[in-house]
């Protein structure tokens, strides 16, 4: 979907660019631009909702203001989107320009439709455990607060997809054998999981943080109509290191649907983590890992697959240990 993003003066991203893959795991210290990357994509979505403005003269823009350039994969590689600043506070101007070559030069409408489906998530276990109104189940909220309603809606509208979701849920979490979605008299829906051995129903509020976050990621991976781009912050949150392989598999299901036997379009995934255990799982695909580095007040992106000595380094240590050691970059600067 998005082929590349180039930043100038956007928060800590003073002058850097990043080619995006179908799946991107972003690692790096706090304040190094991981969230800024996601915010830039969300700002593109926000401005894409509005009608495109006429061209703005250079002297109307903030001379030192932020600028973010987006390029896209086919069928929209004939277009470039730029976010610049007319006001001082935010990037508030979206302009779309045709490129000399590429497809979709006249299809801003098609690209816009895809951009409007971009979603960002940072699951919060307390929100995921909440009891939402049944009517709020159209799509998963950014913190997962309407998960129960989303699942109830899918059970109704997409019973086959829902059955695949529950089958995967019980494979991942074999201690449970029933997903309970109780529609209450007040038109709210309550989520719970029934223990396989004791038949006890555990209400969402009593489920473990990692269980709730896994449920939300699972719901995302089995969305029958997923967004074009999914950004997820801290995908390892609360999840045991041994279950991270399953979480990676779920995210791969979004980015590489054909390999999971699905026929829908791939979803571009941008995920962040601070877990060396999760990073270990990308030993075979270092090209999917983006390292953010911050020197002074400026941050930049590099692809782990571009590290010249990576095969040699991997002969002596795991990827996660290499990252922690500092030899891959992406670690905090010493005080």
């Amino acid at each position: 979907m998005i082929a590349s993003v180039a930043f100038r003066n956007f928060k800590a991203l003073r002058s850097t660019s990043l080619a995006l893959a179908p799946f991107n795991l972003v690692i790096g210290p706090n304040g190094s631009g991981k969230t800024s990357l996601i915010q830039a994509i969300l700002q593109l979505r926000a401005l894409a909702k509005l009608p495109l403005r006429e061209a703005v003269a250079d002297n109307e823009r903030q001379p030192e203001g932020a600028e973010i350039l987006f390029r896209f994969n086919p069928p929209f590689d004939g277009l470039e989107a730029s976010l610049t600043c007319v006001s001082e506070a935010v990037c508030d101007l979206l302009q779309v320009t045709p490129l000399p070559s590429g497809e979709g030069v006249d299809d801003w409408a098609g690209l816009r439709t895809r951009l409007l489906s971009v979603r960002s998530y940072c699951f919060d276990h307390e929100a995921v455990a909440s009891t939402p109104a049944l009517k709020d189940g159209a799509e998963l909220a950014s913190d997962g607060c309407n998960l129960a309603a989303v699942l109830a809606a899918r059970r109704q509208a997409f019973p086959e997809a829902f059955a695949r979701f529950t089958a995967e849920l019980f494979r991942l979490l074999p201690e449970y054998d029933e997903l309970s979605l109780i529609e209450r008299a007040d038109q709210c829906v309550q989520l719970g999981l029934r223990l396989a051995d004791g038949a006890e129903l555990i209400p969402a509020g009593d489920l473990a943080q990692g269980t709730l976050c896994s449920l939300a990621i699972l719901a995302l991976a089995f969305d029958p109509a997923p967004p074009a781009i999914v950004c997820i912050e801290e995908i390892d949150r609360g999840i045991h290191p041994r279950l991270l392989r399953d979480i990676r598999d779920l995210l791969y299901r979004l980015s590489y649907p054909a390999e999971a036997g699905e026929t829908r379009a791939p979803v571009q995934v941008i995920a962040t983590t601070h877990s060396p255990y999760l990073l270990d799982l990308f030993r075979e695909h270092p090209e999917e890992v983006v390292v953010t580095e911050k020197h002074g007040r400026a941050a930049r992106f590099t692809r782990l697959g571009d590290h010249p000595d990576l095969p040699g380094l991997l002969a002596g240590a795991s990827l996660g240990d290499l990252w922690f050691s500092g030899v891959l970059g992406g670690v905090p600067e010493d005080k």
């Binding site: 494979r171 392989r245 399953d246 598999d249 791969y252 299901r253 590489y256 390999e259 999971a260 075979e284 695909h285």
Partner: peptide
């Protein structure tokens, strides 16, 4: 290569654990 072996066994570069 190791990736080639994996591909021959699993039919994909990114097999799920299952």
């Amino acid at each position: 290569t190791r990736p080639q072996l994996k591909y021959r066994v699993y039919g994909t570069d990114r097999p799920s654990l299952y």
